[in-house]
Design a protein around this nucleic acid. Structure first.
Length: 598
DNA sequence: GCCGTTTTCGGCCCGACTGTTTTCAGTCG
């Protein structure tokens, strides 16, 4: 049977999460709801298709998944649904779970408006707010109603979360300003931005100051603030004119490390740390680590927090409770790839084809400024508007080769389309002389999974492809990944020596972090490429590095960390791939199985 | 529903802030 591993896990996680929501709404034991919620998070975080774990009968080895939930998962895999969910869904009107996603509406409030007013839809909730009938519900007052109307408006306006590249610059601007406020000793961006998540919910900021008042005031009086949502002595929230929410927490300097750890999250990571602390008689909070008698054992720095738990400092990108704590405990944390490790860029467009806006010379100059040692010029092939045919490609290559004495070294390449039948958009003999052939899918995204997978397999087996470009085709918030069998693609990539791209265009980030982890487990190396269409986009490479880091990748997993000669030797190679010299057996990577397999 | 280097039963992370209250429930992160 055909499956799409990453989606498959996400779908199962979604179903478990739905059950959790339904349980919250129907009352009963809230810990039961939490168990489902936690299980959903675990499944979502798996770096292996859950179907494979299920087939091995190892579901209950996963943390947070016992007999009962394992049975539900099995049922979901086999039938696509499960009785538990169906049964719960019958108790609750459709539409009710959506109300939970409105800010300020928790399970108690949703159940209250449902039971006392029969409200089950967002529209009806809005109407009840406007007419005032909602005031009959206990603990509903005029202020809340006003906030609720605003939250409903935001709920409707919000299509998914904000991509990192939109939130990061805003956060950087604000934090730079707060650093200059009076009495500030330290200031950092925290939350999902610090973890470099691909999308973020809101901006979390942390400041250490001897006097919180001036900082809070500076924050709430910024020009870009549209509304002050909450304001207290240590914590305040504003809505920016861009629509983003920004949270500021101000702590004493001695608590900065504890607060930074706490505010960076993820929530799941922090909970796991606190539980670990409890087992050792330690209480963790945003103020520090405390022993049973309440004596403070540290918290000035994040390192102290982790050390108190017997752990080394864990990079923020790994803090998702996906095995990093177990890995840290056993000295098995990856030495994550860094931006400075990446020596060159293997996917860049020039004016020679359709959509590039800079000349090859301009790109080379800008790449040199960024310290790149090599740069592959990979313009589009003929199927793209104004793309290169064999003749224009030859001229283009000649032009590039005429510039090879420049720094960085220029590689003549192409981004060739993978056509609907899996053949390439240019003859193999036109592609064979090129130093970097990136093959990508740009059309017919709706092919069924088997056909799409076969297109990629055929392209990889052409013998002339070095890199599979933006493998899933997704665009954040715009286009979902197309259906394909990632496990199969990884298998063939390994067989043919083709590297998978981590496309660093910030609205692509494709491969995703989770797919990077799967690639590593399958022994397939990646290249991190900017896919720049203008000199200003060459710097986007950092977004790709962050994805790779979130995917646990090390320098040795990324081919363009190699010096040019070694890179070219690797790109020529068509045998089975072994990551950067150190032989890596494919291995199983589960959410918390790192400790047991490494 | 899950879990155990205190436990197979009895717990389940912890604190800030708001609104609606007059001592606190609910939500959020």
């Amino acid at each position: 049977m055909h499956f799409r591993p990453v989606m498959e896990n996400a779908e199962i996680a979604q179903a478990l999460s739905e059950i959790a929501g339904l349980l919250e709404l129907t009352g009963g034991n809230p810990f039961r709801a939490r168990a489902y919620s936690r299980a959903a998070q675990i499944v979502d975080g798996l770096a292996e298709p859950i179907e494979a774990i299920w087939k091995r009968g190892e579901l209950t080895d996963l943390p947070g998944i016992g007999e009962r939930i394992a049975a539900h998962v099995g049922e979901l895999i086999e039938k696509g649904t499960c009785a538990e969910r169906e049964q719960l869904a019958r108790k609750v009107p459709p539409g009710l779970p959506e109300l939970l996603r409105i800010e300020g509406m928790g399970p108690k409030s949703v159940a209250a408006v449902w039971k006392s007013l029969g409200i089950t839809q967002v529209d009806a909730l809005e109407e009840a707010c406007r007419s005032g009938t909602i005031l009959e519900v206990p603990r509903m007052g005029r202020v809340r109603v006003k906030g609720l109307l605003e939250a409903i408006r935001r709920h409707r306006a919000r299509r998914g979360r904000t991509p990192l590249y939109r939130a990061l610059p805003a956060a950087e601007t604000i934090i730079a300003r707060l650093r200059k406020a009076p009495a500030v000793t330290a200031a950092e961006i925290a939350g999902s931005i610090r973890r470099r998540c691909e999308t973020i919910g809101d901006i979390d900021l942390l400041v250490a100051a001897t006097d919180p008042a001036p900082v809070t005031s500076a924050f709430t009086h910024m020009a870009e603030v549209a509304q002050i949502v909450a304001e207290g002595p240590t914590r305040s929230t504003v809505r920016l004119r861009s629509g983003l929410h920004a949270d500021l927490r101000v702590v004493e300097p001695k608590s900065f490390g504890a607060a930074l750890q706490y505010l960076t999250g993820s929530k799941a990571h922090s909970i796991a740390l606190r539980k670990r602390g409890l087992r050792r008689g330690l209480k963790l909070s945003e103020y520090g680590v405390f022993d049973r008698r309440g004596r403070r054992k540290g918290g000035d720095t994040e390192e102290q927090m982790y050390r108190a738990l017997g752990l080394p400092w864990i990079p923020p990108e790994l803090r998702e409770d996906r095995g990093e704590i177990e890995a840290a405990e056993h000295g098995g944390l990856p030495l994550l790839v860094e931006e400075k490790d990446v020596l060159g860029d293997l996917h860049v467009h020039s004016k020679a084809s359709s959509d590039g806006h800079s000349t090859v010379e301009e790109l080379a100059d800008a790449a040199r400024e960024l310290g790149r040692r090599y740069l592959a010029i990979t313009d589009h092939s003929r199927s793209r508007p104004l793309g290169l045919d064999a003749e224009r490609l030859a001229q283009h290559v000649e032009h590039i080769r005429g510039l090879t004495s420049r720094d960085p070294v220029l590689l003549a390449g192409i981004e060739v389309d993978i056509l609907p039948d899996g053949s390439l958009d240019l003859p193999v003999d036109a592609l064979a002389p090129l130093q970097c052939v990136v093959a990508s899918i740009h059309a017919h995204f709706n092919d069924p999974s088997p056909k799409m997978t076969e297109r990629m397999v055929r392209a990889m087996r052409s013998g002339v492809v070095h890199v599979l470009g933006h493998p899933s085709g997704r665009q954040l918030g715009m286009r979902d990944p197309y259906a394909f069998d990632l496990a199969r693609v990884l298998e063939i990539a390994r067989e043919t020596g083709v590297a998978l791209e981590v496309n660093a265009q910030p609205e692509r980030l494709d491969l995703s972090d989770q797919a990077c982890r799967l690639a590593k487990a399958a022994g397939v190396p990646v290249v991190i490429s900017s896919d720049a269409h203008h000199v200003s986009q060459l710097a986007n490479l950092r977004y790709g590095v962050w994805v790779a880091r979130r995917g646990w990748l090390e320098k040795g997993d990324v081919l363009n960390t190699l010096p040019l000669e070694a890179l070219q030797a690797r790109l020529r190679r068509k045998g089975p791939v072994i990551a950067n010299g150190s032989a890596r057996r494919p291995r199983r990577l589960g959410a918390a199985s790192e400790a047991t397999v490494s």
